[in-house]
């Protein structure tokens, strides 16, 4: 194909949602390696543009450049985004930073029950049960999903902001 990155841009534009790399390869009838390369080219091409590309290991998605959010808001006044509650974010960060982790481990660190928060995060598709822990009762192990990465606009867990040890030595 002549211009694979343009073709990918087109597919991502009409899809809106994250599209699997394998799906892109299937639709464009090329090898996955060409998709990877096309995505890299597209990412470069979209530098400093109104559209930005987020690529994770599994999928890719186009979104608007966060820099122009205020203007988007004035133009479309999108529905007010509910900011996630603290209990939700605390639970999510435990799964994000300590995955895989069990419900009991989360509750032990937070000191409160987390049924609601975990249920919400599962419903939102941000976390999933990735297996069972080989211990008494075989509790479910929780991990973050590909959708979680897109929600944060990062391409892998390595890009999570690190909290350094010295930051919490003393209060």
């Amino acid at each position: 194909m002549e211009n694979i990155s343009s073709a990918i841009e087109c597919l991502l534009f009409v899809s809106g949602e994250p599209v699997e790399k394998a799906e892109l390869a299937r639709a464009l009838e090329v090898e996955i390696g060409e998709i990877e390369q096309g995505l890299a080219e597209l990412k470069d091409a979209l530098e400093n543009r109104g559209i930005r590309l987020v690529v994770t290991t599994a999928s890719a998605q186009l979104g608007s450049n966060p820099e122009y959010y205020d203007a988007v808001e004035r133009l479309l006044s999108p529905a007010v985004k509910r900011s996630a509650s603290r209990s939700l974010m605390e639970t999510l960060s435990l799964v994000a930073y300590r995955q895989p982790i069990t419900r009991a481990e989360i509750e032990n660190i937070r000191g409160v029950r987390c049924d609601y928060a975990i249920g919400q995060l599962l419903r939102l598709g941000l976390i999933y049960e990735c297996g069972k822990k080989e211990t008494v009762g075989r509790p479910a192990l929780l991990a973050t999903t590909d959708a979680f990465l897109h929600k944060l606009g990062i391409s892998s867990l390595d890009e999570l902001p690190r909290v350094e040890a010295e930051d919490f030595g003393t209060v």
Binding site: G63, S64, K81, A84, L160, P161, V163
Partner: peptide, 17 residues
């Protein structure tokens, strides 16, 4: 960690899909 994640989340919520 939760504060960092929240900030990242809110920053990224400004990208509309």
């Amino acid at each position: 960690e939760s504060m960092e994640l929240t900030q990242l989340y809110l920053e990224n919520a400004k990208s509309v899909v």
